[in-house]
Design a protein around this nucleic acid. Structure first.
Lengths: 115, 115
DNA sequence: TGAACGATTGAACAAACGTTCAATCGTTCA
DNA sequence: TGAACGATTGAACGTTTGTTCAATCGTTCA
């Protein structure tokens, strides 16, 4: 499958292949980034980074329908990025993982610096 | 557009809205994450995090066609994540931004820890 | 010059995505 | 209980995405 005859510098290729991270880890990274790679979900996460909020509150903050927000919350919850808890009629969401929050904050700082 | 009458805790909503980051910054974050949210691009970035590599070398490492790789490289370059330089017939790519590399490494560590 | 090679491009296609809409579920409280 | 409210779900849709294929560009070196 891999054809080295076209490449002049085989060592770099071989070393790169040897030191490539586990494919499952890379897939998880991609899945995590993909999840954070949508403006709606980014704004949801920004909102949740201050307070825990219920669905309709999030919908208010990001100016979207509860339905649309709920669909996105499902994805975020599936991957363990956020957490939910029922409180009477409302379901309250919050960010579940500290790592995520850190990565997220770092990216936001980067984006704000960049201007 | 925003209807507070359905929400019991208006303060949380108002505070969240007040402290929301700039929309452009959030869009940039989303764009960056989206860019890193594809298995092919993740593996390309992993390969490049060791050495600079030309297109066909990258194609070898990630087991894809030069064309497919080239399309992805174009996206990564457009957003300033990678850098290119012609060297004879080959075009050599490398990671351009330290921040990106840091965010990326953090996410990879997180994904590997998680198991 | 022209053949060979690596890289890029654009059209085309299937797959995946995000939102809307309508229907339904779960909880509360007259 | 049943009306009201918030949340969830599934189908449908238009859009976006990633890959393939074929054509083209840019560079090198006989």
């Amino acid at each position: 499958m891999v054809d080295f005859t076209i490449c002049t510098c085989e060592n770099a290729v071989l070393h790169a292949m040897d030191t490539m991270p586990d494919e499952r880890a890379m897939d998880r990274v991609a899945a995590l980034f993909k999840l954070c790679g949508d403006p709606t979900r980014v704004s949801i996460l920004c909102a949740l980074s201050r307070h825990e909020l219920c669905v309709c509150e999030i919908a208010s903050v990001v100016s979207m329908s509860s339905s649309a927000v709920s669909h996105q919350l499902r994805l975020l919850k599936q991957t363990g990025v956020i957490h939910s808890r029922r409180q009477g009629k409302a379901v309250v969401y919050s960010i579940a993982d500290g790592h995520i929050e850190e990565i997220f904050r770092l990216a936001l700082t980067h984006a704000e610096e960049e201007q």
